[in-house]
């Protein structure tokens, strides 16, 4: 039997007793060990990647939902830390989860934090290099966000919800207190953080993510809030390694 055919039949045999019997003979009962490993390895990976969702629904409900996703959704990589990027959409459509309407957005933020945890390292911002750029050229600079940075806009208070689940606490938000914009990233101490953003801050960082030059990014922020204090926000983003570099032309 050709190897590719054998491996396709092996995959089928994980869920098909007759196929297992044909391929494995007297050892066919062992096939269930692989089916079990595959299912639980995926579910365990989801439990690691979605800690807030798991706390919101409890381990039993989470396990059932994770296994339902794992049965329906193939893994594509030998690295299980890359498994689970569609879990939020699955939760949105998962009938038993409809009692918690903000669960899918909590999952979105969990996934962005998971990506931030494993994102590539980056060198710190080169302040002397920025100081050497003449002031009249600042408007055409393209600020670069750290590889760990993600932005999320939600109709639910997702940033406050995330913060309420951290050891240092934070008040548990009322789900109907209104939407939030969240920033997820990894700080200089390698800790994943979430911060609630004001609309102007969100507009500025989203413009940077779209590779707009500083002058246009500032316009986006001012459209949201004429009082936007760019100097103060920039200082914080440089300190927290949210913005980590700049280019004189858009990066590809």
């Amino acid at each position: 039997m050709k190897l590719d055919e054998l491996q396709r039949r092996f995959a089928q045999a994980l869920h098909d007793a007759a196929a297992a019997q044909a391929l494995f003979g007297a050892s066919a009962h062992g096939a269930s060990a692989y089916a079990n490993n595959t299912l639980f390895n995926r579910a365990d990976a989801l439990a690691e990647a979605y800690p807030i969702v798991r706390q919101l629904v409890g381990d039993d409900f989470f396990g059932g939902m994770a296994r339902a996703y794992a049965r329906a959704t193939p893994s594509r990589s030998g690295d299980l830390n890359r498994y689970g990027d569609g879990f939020a959409e699955f939760i949105r459509d998962f009938p038993p989860a409809q009692d918690i309407p903000f669960l899918a957005d909590a999952a979105r933020l969990d996934w962005l934090c998971h990506l931030a945890y494993y994102a590539e390292d980056n060198p710190p911002f080169d302040l002397p290099r920025l100081a050497s750029v003449p002031a009249e050229q600042h408007g055409s600079l393209h600020f670069q966000l750290a590889p760990s940075v993600s932005l999320l806009r939600s109709p639910w208070p997702v940033a406050s919800l995330w913060l309420a689940h951290q050891p240092e606490g934070g008040d548990f938000p009322s789900p109907d207190q209104g939407g939030e914009m969240a920033l997820a990233w990894r700080n200089p101490h390698n800790r994943v953080q979430v911060r609630r953003l004001m609309p102007a801050d969100h507009a500025f960082l989203a413009a940077c993510a779209r590779q707009l030059p500083l002058a246009e990014a500032l316009e986006c922020a001012m459209d949201e809030d004429m009082e936007f204090d760019f100097g103060l926000s920039l200082q914080q983003w440089l300190h927290d390694q949210v913005i980590v570099d700049f280019n004189e032309s858009p990066s590809t």
């Binding site: 039997m1 190897l3 590719d4 054998l6 491996q7 995959a11 595959t38 390895n41 990589s77």
Partner: peptide
């Protein structure tokens, strides 16, 4: 560990 459609994230035996 993989076919064209799916990765099994396990150590599957070769013949």
């Amino acid at each position: 560990n993989r076919t064209g459609e799916e990765c099994y994230n396990d150590l599957l035996p070769l013949p």
